[in-house]
Write a protein that binds this DNA or RNA. Structure first.
Lengths: 204, 204
DNA sequence: CTGATATACTTAACATCGTTATGCGAATGC
DNA sequence: GCATTCGCATAACGATGTTAAGTATATCAG
């Protein structure tokens, strides 16, 4: 059976090669200049070959983002584990989220900003069920819970508060990513203002 | 000169007809299924005719959104004029913004969510210089200023606080619009949580 | 070793998109 | 009445995502 294993391994290798090339192209050319055909040219295969490894463009990008966001989750989870004060932990996590989005704009765009064609089975796949997005959100929920338990926050509907915080973070992040030319005040100041205002608004 | 006037009027009429048809198609089919060719078919003209009235697709959509957002500005300005308590005025304005976005998802998408091709002269045209977006933002800034002046809010960097509030509002709105299938808590509760948290966080 | 089958990939094509160059007929101005 | 301008259309270009059909090559059974 060693032959079958080799085949599988080779298939997995090409798949990863495609993903790597896609990421390269994607962050370099930006979202709107990414195309399956350019990707095919880059890896020196026919465009149709990609479809032997990914269902379609959306599937490819989805897998790409899962990879990227696993890094975010990793960051968030280490932050959570290292935090002594629950409030500081939450704050650090919030900051990490925004900075991650600003640092990987193209990736942030696909997973959170761009409207995925609705009505298709795809809409389910994003954000919701399994995946890194869920784990990231769990980090947030847990951080909020600890703030409540420590008496730093008033008694809150955990889910509601967590979603609200996420919304707030997504607001700054997406605006900065999508409209970088808007006459923003200093970026760090703005992010800080948003985070501190939100935290202040949730305190006991 | 009455003949020239008629020509001009006819030209303006067709232009408006195009805009109306575009809006219809746009909100019915959604953003991603809107195309110049479908629009052309709908108005029963050749696709190229549209380009005699609008520079390109982005220009068309921009004008569409200006129309739509003038309604938002109108709402915001009446709210501002009617408000007795500055805090209530701000609150009402914030709520109106979110509800407007949720009610006109397609329009909200083009103006605020979708990344406009950067590097082009277009990027300047959006949000920034003239236009309804600016007027809407002025409403916000003024409302914040009044809250500060009335002593409801602590002393704030007006611009920074206003941008933060906008970011927060955009966060909820865009998430609700882009990811309607996410297992949100009750929509009104979420919006309320975001708004109240933010207001609370800015108080004196 | 030979013939059948499955595998990996390509070529060609379809439908659609935004946009431009060219052309044509009719209304306008002199 | 003639030249011109104006409004619009036809045709085309280049690009997109995606599918159908085909072609080698590698694997496997006898």
């Amino acid at each position: 059976m060693t032959v079958k294993e080799r085949r599988l391994r080779e298939k997995a290798e090409l798949r990863q090669e495609i993903l790597d090339a896609a990421r390269e192209l994607f962050v370099r050319e930006g979202y709107e200049n990414f195309s399956m055909r350019k990707l095919a040219e880059k890896i020196e295969y026919s465009p149709t070959t990609i479809y032997l490894y990914f269902k379609d463009k959306a599937d490819l990008l989805f897998n790409l983002c899962e990879e990227t966001f696993s890094k975010l989750v990793q960051q968030l989870e280490t932050i959570a584990s290292l935090a002594t004060d629950p409030l500081d932990g939450l704050r650090a996590g919030m900051l990490a989220y925004v900075e991650f989005g600003v640092k990987h704009p193209a990736n942030y765009l696909v997973t959170f900003v761009l409207p995925h064609p609705i009505g298709t089975p795809d809409s389910e796949r994003y954000l919701c069920p399994t995946g890194m997005g869920l784990r990231a959100f769990d980090c947030l929920r847990q951080a909020v819970a600890e703030c409540v338990r420590a008496g730093k926050f008033r008694s809150l509907d955990l889910e509601k508060a967590s979603q609200a915080i996420w919304a707030v973070l997504h607001g700054v992040t997406s605006l900065l990513v999508v409209h970088p030319d808007f006459p923003w005040v200093d970026r760090n100041d703005l992010v800080d203002q948003v985070i501190e205002t939100t935290i202040e608004g949730l305190k006991a």
